[in-house]
C-alpha cells in the first residue's frame, strides 16, 4: 500500500487517490473515479483521446502519473464549464462533428484549451493546437469549422 493519499481537485471538488502513485491519471479517472468521458486510445500521448485540463491547460492524462497532479485542479469533459466550453460544445453539436465519437471528448478539451488562451485563434493556431488529437473517422473538416465559428462567437 502506498503511504499517503494524493489530494487534488477534480471537477471543482476535493478528491483523494490512495492507489499506486504511478497510476496514469487516465486510469485513475476511469477505473477509480468512474469518469468515463476521458478515453484511452494509445497510452503514449500519440492520439489525444485522453485529454483533460490540469490547472486549465490541456494535458494527456495517459502519461500523467496521478502523483504529479497533487494539489492541482483536474477538469474532465464531465466537469468543464464556462463560456468557452459552452460555445465550443454548442458549435460541435451544430456542425455535427462527431462520427463514432470516441475521440471527441479529447478533441473538445483541446479546443476549449485553445480558445481559453486564444479566443481569436486562426487556422494555423487551430492546426497547431489540434494536431495532437487523432480522429480515425477524419472529422477534421468539421472540427476546424466548429472551432472557427466558436472563435467568431467568442470574439464578438
Amino acid at each position: 500500500m502506498t503511504s499517503k493519499p494524493i489530494a487534488f481537485t477534480l471537477n471543482g471538488e476535493a478528491a483523494s487517490f490512495e492507489g499506486e502513485r504511478d497510476t496514469p491519471l487516465l486510469w485513475a479517472l476511469r477505473d477509480h473515479f468512474g469518469l468515463h468521458g476521458t478515453k484511452y486510445g494509445c497510452g503514449m500521448a500519440q492520439c489525444g483521446a485522453c485529454t483533460v485540463h490540469i490547472d486549465g491547460t490541456p494535458r494527456r492524462s495517459c502519461i500523467t502519473p496521478i502523483s504529479s497532479v497533487s494539489d492541482q485542479k483536474v477538469t474532465t469533459i464531465e466537469g468543464v464549464n464556462g463560456k468557452v466550453a459552452d460555445t465550443v460544445i454548442a458549435e460541435w453539436i451544430r456542425h455535427e462533428v462527431p462520427q463514432c465519437g470516441f475521440c471527441q471528448s479529447g478533441q473538445v478539451m483541446s479546443a476549449i484549451g485553445l480558445l481559453s488562451t486564444k479566443p481569436d485563434a486562426g487556422d494555423a493556431e487551430i492546426d497547431a493546437a489540434m494536431r495532437g488529437n487523432i480522429c480515425r473517422c477524419a472529422t477534421y473538416v468539421r472540427i476546424r469549422q466548429a472551432i472557427r465559428d466558436a472563435a467568431k462567437a467568442l470574439s464578438t
Partner: peptide
Amino acid sequence: VPRIDSPAKSTGKAVFAMDVT
C-alpha cells in the same frame, strides 16, 4: 435532420463498451 447522437458524443456522455462497468 440533426444527428441524434451529436449531443451525447460532444459532451463525453456517450457510453461505449469500454465505459460499461
